[in-house]
């Protein structure tokens, strides 16, 4: 049993999606995250164990390596793809309530800002950590964030801004959220954003990379 979970974790860590996937080249022809998850379920390993011990743990290692600049965006994307292939087999267990998400996370790039590469990576990492992520996209007005919180009252929120010219919009969005929903935690990130700005606008956490957001959420 342990062997298959180790193998599955390895596939997620190194981005081996399924048997036919050509990447990584040194795993050509071997089973990938897709097949191994199916086999693990067939062997009777519980969905919770598959999710936490193999998949989430692997994504954690991926996030760590990304922070340490040992891997880059392409490798992180491949891991997220392998993770998704595995999670697809866990859908019935989520639906039946046997396993649950850790919570909901709403993510958006703020009004006026079209940068979304970073936001998308954060989304993958947080999904990979076992959360349900609601992605509102780019150039997102404050009202849309507020409506989404209203519909998902326990959600935590992540906002991205890559431009000095949109940091003001981030501030407006954060202040509006805090005045209506003071207890919903807000994480901010993006190139010009920092700890000092977080404090100034009253957000709860500044994350320089996806992994630190995951650690904050898991606290």
């Amino acid at each position: 049993m342990e062997d298959i979970l180790v193998k599955l974790g390895y596939c997620v860590e190194f981005g081996k999606v399924d048997k036919n996937a050509p990447y990584p080249p040194d795993m050509k022809g071997q089973d990938g995250a897709d097949e191994l998850t199916k086999q693990a379920i067939e062997q009777g390993i519980s969905a919770a164990v598959i999710l936490e011990d193999a998949l989430v743990a692997a994504m954690n290692r991926v996030g760590q390596k990304f922070t340490e600049k040992k891997i880059f965006i392409p490798q992180m994307l491949m891991s997220a793809k392998a993770m998704n292939a595995a999670v697809a087999h866990l859908k019935p267990f989520f639906n039946s309530g046997e396993i649950t998400r850790k919570g909901k996370f709403i993510i958006a790039t703020v009004k006026g800002d079209l940068h979304d590469i970073g936001k998308n990576l954060v989304k993958m990492a947080i999904e990979g950590a076992g959360w349900e992520v609601i992605d509102l996209g780019v150039d997102v007005p404050t009202e849309k964030v507020l409506e989404t919180i209203q519909a998902n009252p326990d959600a935590k929120i992540g906002l991205s801004a890559l431009l000095t010219t949109t940091m003001g919009n981030m501030q407006v969005t954060v202040e509006s959220i805090k005045s209506k929903y003071p207890s919903n935690a807000i994480i901010i990130g993006g190139a010009p954003v920092n700890e000092e700005f977080k404090t100034k606008i009253g957000a709860d956490f500044y994350a320089p990379d996806p992994q630190s957001a995951v650690s904050y959420l898991n606290r």
Binding site: P74, L77, K81
Partner: peptide, 12 residues
């Protein structure tokens, strides 16, 4: 599409 492209750099 950038994300797809970055994966194609590895897979194809």
């Amino acid at each position: 599409g950038m994300e797809h492209a970055l994966m194609v750099m590895l897979t194809n």
